[in-house]
Lab assay of single mutants.
Amino acid sequence: RLRTTITPEQLEILYEKYLLDSNPTRKMLDHIAREVGLKKRVVQVWFQNTRARERK
């Protein structure tokens, strides 16, 4: 399986959204995914991984 490459522009948007809410609802994930042009599951995993990194 190929990994999804997230561009610096997409990362910037994702981090902005993360600062507003680190645990977004399904509806918010849909909205964020459309905004950055990624699949909802990719955005969901990015948020999970970012939360895990923050806990370390």
Rank of each mutant, 00 (worst) to 15 (best):
R1A: 15
R1S: 15
L2I: 09
L2A: 10
L2D: 15
L2W: 04
L2C: 06
L2V: 11
L2F: 12
R3F: 11
R3H: 04
R3P: 11
R3S: 15
R3C: 14
T4L: 08
T4E: 13
T4Y: 09
T4M: 11
T4R: 03
T4W: 05
T4I: 09
T5V: 12
T5I: 12
T5C: 10
T5P: 11
T5A: 05
T5H: 13
I6F: 08
I6R: 00
I6D: 01
I6W: 04
I6T: 03
I6C: 03
I6S: 02
T7R: 04
T7D: 06
T7I: 02
T7M: 05
T7K: 03
T7Q: 06
P8E: 14
P8H: 04
P8L: 14
P8D: 09
E9S: 08
E9H: 06
E9M: 08
E9Y: 06
E9K: 13
E9I: 07
Q10R: 02
Q10K: 03
Q10P: 01
Q10S: 03
Q10D: 14
L11D: 13
L11T: 14
L11G: 11
E12I: 15
E12K: 14
E12R: 12
E12Q: 12
I13N: 08
I13A: 12
I13G: 07
I13Q: 14
L14V: 00
L14Q: 00
L14F: 02
L14M: 07
L14D: 02
L14H: 01
L14S: 00
L14N: 15
L14A: 01
Y15N: 13
Y15D: 11
Y15E: 15
Y15G: 12
Y15K: 13
Y15A: 09
K17V: 03
K17A: 06
K17N: 12
Y18R: 02
Y18T: 01
Y18M: 01
Y18E: 00
Y18H: 01
Y18D: 00
L19M: 09
L19P: 00
L19E: 08
L19G: 11
L19S: 11
L19R: 09
L19C: 10
L20V: 11
L20A: 09
L20G: 09
L20Y: 15
L20P: 02
D21T: 04
D21H: 02
D21Q: 05
D21K: 02
D21A: 04
D21P: 01
S22H: 06
S22V: 04
S22N: 04
S22K: 06
S22G: 10
S22C: 10
S22R: 05
N23R: 12
N23V: 05
N23W: 07
N23I: 09
N23H: 06
N23L: 07
N23A: 10
N23G: 09
P24C: 01
P24R: 00
P24H: 01
P24K: 00
P24S: 00
P24A: 01
P24D: 02
T25A: 05
T25P: 08
T25R: 02
T25I: 03
T25F: 05
T25C: 14
R26H: 11
R26A: 13
R26F: 08
R26Q: 15
R26E: 14
R26N: 15
K27R: 04
K27P: 13
K27C: 09
K27S: 13
K27W: 06
K27F: 06
M28V: 09
M28L: 09
M28I: 09
M28P: 00
M28S: 08
M28H: 06
M28K: 03
M28E: 11
M28D: 14
L29Y: 07
L29V: 11
L29D: 02
L29W: 11
L29E: 14
L29F: 10
L29N: 05
L29Q: 09
L29T: 07
L29G: 00
L29A: 07
D30M: 05
D30C: 04
D30I: 10
D30E: 10
H31D: 12
H31R: 09
H31N: 05
H31K: 13
H31G: 11
H31L: 09
I32T: 04
I32A: 01
I32Q: 00
I32N: 00
I32E: 00
I32F: 05
I32D: 01
I32S: 00
I32L: 08
I32K: 01
I32W: 07
A33G: 05
A33V: 02
A33C: 11
A33T: 05
A33D: 03
A33P: 03
A33I: 08
A33E: 05
R34W: 08
R34Q: 13
R34F: 09
R34Y: 14
R34L: 11
R34T: 11
R34V: 11
E35G: 06
E35F: 03
E35L: 06
E35Y: 04
E35W: 03
E35V: 05
E35C: 05
V36H: 04
V36R: 00
V36I: 05
V36A: 09
V36L: 09
V36T: 11
V36N: 04
V36F: 03
G37M: 04
G37Y: 00
G37E: 04
G37F: 03
G37H: 04
G37P: 01
G37L: 02
L38A: 03
L38P: 01
L38T: 00
L38H: 00
L38I: 11
K39Y: 15
K39I: 01
K39S: 15
K39M: 04
K40C: 13
K40N: 12
K40I: 13
K40Q: 09
K40V: 15
K40H: 07
K40F: 14
R41S: 15
R41V: 12
R41P: 14
R41W: 09
R41T: 14
R41E: 15
R41D: 12
V42G: 03
V42D: 14
V42S: 05
V42Q: 11
V42C: 07
V42A: 07
V42R: 04
V42F: 11
V43H: 03
V43Q: 01
V43T: 03
Q44L: 09
Q44P: 01
Q44R: 07
Q44T: 10
Q44N: 09
Q44E: 15
Q44I: 06
V45D: 14
V45G: 07
V45L: 09
V45Y: 11
V45F: 02
V45P: 02
V45Q: 03
V45K: 06
W46Q: 00
W46P: 01
W46K: 00
W46N: 00
F47K: 00
F47A: 00
F47T: 01
F47M: 03
F47D: 04
F47W: 12
Q48L: 03
Q48T: 12
Q48C: 06
Q48Y: 08
N49E: 15
N49V: 09
N49I: 13
N49A: 12
N49F: 05
N49T: 09
N49Y: 04
T50Y: 09
T50K: 12
T50I: 11
T50F: 10
T50V: 10
T50R: 13
R51L: 14
R51E: 08
R51Y: 07
R51W: 12
R51D: 08
R51A: 14
R51P: 00
R51N: 14
R51K: 12
A52M: 06
A52S: 07
A52G: 09
A52I: 07
A52N: 14
A52Q: 11
A52C: 02
A52P: 02
A52L: 07
R53P: 05
R53G: 12
R53L: 12
R53I: 08
R53W: 05
R53K: 13
R53A: 11
E54T: 02
E54R: 03
E54L: 07
E54P: 03
E54A: 04
E54G: 05
E54C: 01
R55E: 15
R55Q: 10
R55F: 07
R55P: 12
R55S: 13
R55N: 15
K56H: 03
